[in-house]
Design a protein around this nucleic acid. Structure first.
Lengths: 130, 130
DNA sequence: CTTGACGTTCCAGTAACTAGAAGCCCTAAC
DNA sequence: GTTAGGGCTTCTAGTTACTGGAACGTCAAG
């Protein structure tokens, strides 16, 4: 099948597929006589693996590791677990950071009357006036 | 004062100050006779405003808006509030997304025995085997 | 006078793609 | 036969918010 079919079936855009091939995340696709990339169900399956891993917050580099582990019959689940735990920690750190930012902003918005007056606690805070 | 002093006092790196100037977020700094940028306490104050706003998750474009509102004596706090609420929503969306990813990953890690066996629920999930 | 720590500009690189240009290829309709 | 439309190819550039580094000017100390 052509790239757009593979894109639809896998949930990875054509552009992204070419990009993944370009950076070496996935093997270069076979080519038809006309030079078009040619995908089969196995390729689509693998692209779905990539899409799901990316959606779970794994970086492209981590996805490459996971694909290697997936291909390796001898891989140990401990290694996979380690990659996953790294991703979890990164995610949790990011959540904590975002929540802290959000809390501060919400607090400021609550105190902001939000009308036509030029007096604004949000700007006051940003300006360092307490 | 020179750029590195301003950087230390404001918490914005020298590189970032030049970058902000380059993209027009802040006014071009005055120059000393030797061509060095010259900052005063007012500049540092403004840089701190930028640093705090960035730290709260405002995009550079939003910071530009906030600076304009801050400079504008006639600005209405409603406008500021609107920008802040936009930032809050973006943050909340991101948190929800990250938490969903994290929850799934944690669930998978729990079910992964994490030993030397090549059997791994995480890879099984990524591969679409349920 | 030299050394080393600053300052300057400009170019490249980061992450993970997306957008768009220029140019084949294929199919179907006229 | 050819023309119109899509889809395919490659390539470059743009995105966000900077950071790192090269090449070079400037300044204060010894």
């Amino acid at each position: 099948m052509n790239i757009s079919q593979a894109a639809v079936q896998s949930g990875v855009s054509s552009k992204a597929i070419r990009y993944y091939e370009g950076i070496g995340l996935i093997e270069p696709a076979r080519r038809s006589d006309n030079g078009y990339r040619d995908f089969d169900d196995g390729d689509v399956h693998m692209l779905r693996f990539v899409a799901r891993a990316r959606g779970l917050g794994f970086s492209v580099i981590e996805v490459a590791e996971l694909l290697a582990l997936y291909r390796d019959r001898e891989r140990a689940s401990a290694q996979v677990r380690k990659v996953a735990q790294g991703a979890i920690r990164r995610i949790e750190d990011k959540v904590a950071e975002l929540q802290s930012m959000g809390d501060t902003l919400k607090h400021l918005v609550e105190r902001c009357h939000g009308d036509q007056r030029p007096d604004c606690p949000i700007l006051d805070d940003l300006a360092g006036r307490h």
